[in-house]
């Protein structure tokens, strides 16, 4: 059974431990601006919503890539960017309708969540279990995907 990140915004306090952890894992420093997971603060509503790639089946980013720089990780099912192949054209960043693959101006390549190879640092750092890494069918991700499918031109 493949696992997915399960996000429960109701539990999130907006502390950004996940962003710190993500940047530490992937960039080696504390730098939330480079985090693959982003917590949005709906101030007026008193709500915090962590948000990252759902590793969607369509993988718009992967399909749009002109040079095959995004590949499926056989173990985790994540769509991973191969940094040395990415040419930095950014087409994936406009293709992904969720806005979860982003251009990193310092590296000239794109970055996205790769589930840390199966041990996501964000879930580990989250003090409230707002982010957990659980069996895929338990995540309610399907709901997000169903919604996302509205973006699809040709649902098969």
């Amino acid at each position: 059974m493949q696992k997915s990140l399960h996000i429960d915004p109701a539990k999130c306090t907006g502390c950004l431990q996940c962003e710190s952890a993500c940047s530490l894992e992937n960039e080696g420093i504390f730098n939330p601006s480079k985090s693959r997971i982003k917590v949005f603060n709906f101030h007026d509503e008193g709500r915090f919503v962590p948000y990252t790639c759902t590793q969607c089946d369509e993988a718009w980013c992967m399909q749009a890539c002109p040079v095959d720089a995004i590949v499926i990780n056989a173990e985790t099912g994540s769509k991973d960017v191969l940094e040395d192949i990415c040419v930095g054209c950014k087409v994936c960043t406009i293709a992904c309708p969720f806005g979860t693959i982003n251009y990193n101006t310092s590296s000239g390549k794109v970055v996205k969540c790769d589930l840390c190879g199966g041990d996501p640092a964000c879930a580990d750092a989250c003090p409230t279990q707002a982010i957990t890494y659980v069996d895929a069918n338990a995540t309610g991700l399907d709901k997000m995907r169903a919604w996302a499918a509205k973006t699809d031109n040709a649902t098969s």
Binding site: I94, A95, P97, F98, G99, I101, N102, T151
Partner: peptide, 10 residues
Amino acid sequence: MTQHVGVMRG
């Protein structure tokens, strides 16, 4: 703008 630009498409 480089962050979350895809949501425009979405």
